[in-house]
């Protein structure tokens, strides 16, 4: 199958101090598909994911070389505005971190910081994206209560709505279900499968079964190196590398 590329990673290397976290990774991430990054913990999955929206740079002592092209533009170009890069991507972290404000304000936060002030428009956005993340029915009567009062599964869906509200093209998930109970995880996964119609989704996970359920495309990392990448069925059923086969079969983890 012929895939349109959305994010293109070229020779990306990342060092924390002198510790290499990613070594010369080159891979293309297809448009409007779910790409799953798998690999054992500490292999650089999250580092790769966070390089996409330049969230690595706050880390002290980090060195980045290579290029990440989003829509053909290198996001590390000095002329690129970092807030613009980040606005293109919604991030779901391992644990939900609702902002210390109401449910409504959480979703409205993104549009507001980008300059939207009209109450009517904000109301519409909040409702739309809470529906999009299938949270609306549960919270429509208490939009102005603190977001911290929600259950952790609801908080994660709220974070999804918050991320979608800035109208990104890409959704990044950093083990987005690892703190959730199975039912809540399932809802997030269901959202992803629905949302891939409109968004490119990249998810980091160490749960292989989740990877099988979600992935259209798979990237396998091991100790900072890209071992193998390809369409999901190829990686899961017929991996070319011995290491990939062992990881998939659970011989190594």
């Amino acid at each position: 199958m012929e895939l349109k590329t959305h994010i293109s990673v070229n020779n990306l290397s990342v060092f924390y101090g002198n510790e290499p976290a990613l070594k010369n990774v080159t891979v293309d991430i297809p448009d409007k598909k779910i790409t799953v990054i798998i690999g054992p913990s500490g292999c650089g999955k999250t580092t790769l994911l966070k390089s996409f929206n330049r969230m690595l740079e706050a880390v002290e002592g980090i060195k980045i070389s290579g290029a990440v092209l989003v829509d053909g533009e290198n996001i590390f170009d000095p002329g690129i505005e970092i807030t613009g890069v980040r606005k293109k991507m919604g991030l779901l972290s391992q644990r939900p971190y609702p902002l210390p404000m109401s449910i409504y304000d959480n979703v409205a936060y993104g549009p507001r910081i980008h300059g939207l002030k009209k109450k009517k428009e904000l109301d519409r956005i909040v409702e739309h994206y809470l529906k999009e993340s299938s949270l609306w029915e549960e919270v429509k009567d208490r939009l102005y209560t603190p977001a911290s009062k929600l259950s952790i599964g609801q908080q994660q869906r709220l974070c999804l709505a918050r991320g979608l509200a800035v109208e990104p093209e890409i959704i990044l998930g950093d083990e987005p279900t690892s703190a959730l109970d199975p039912k809540s995880s399932q809802r997030i996964e269901a959202r992803f499968l629905e949302l891939k119609k409109d968004y490119t989704i990249v998810v980091v996970t160490h749960i292989l079964r989740q990877a099988r359920r979600l992935a259209d495309y798979v990237i396998f990392l091991y100790l900072g190196e890209l071992i193998e990448h390809g369409p999901a069925n190829q990686i899961f059923d017929n991996p070319k590398q011995e290491m990939t086969r062992e990881y998939i079969q659970g011989v190594i983890s």
Binding site: M55, R86, G110, I113, R162, V166
Partner: peptide
């Protein structure tokens, strides 16, 4: 990060 990732 949650705020920065939204482009703030």
């Amino acid at each position: 990060d949650a705020s920065l990732a939204l482009g703030a």
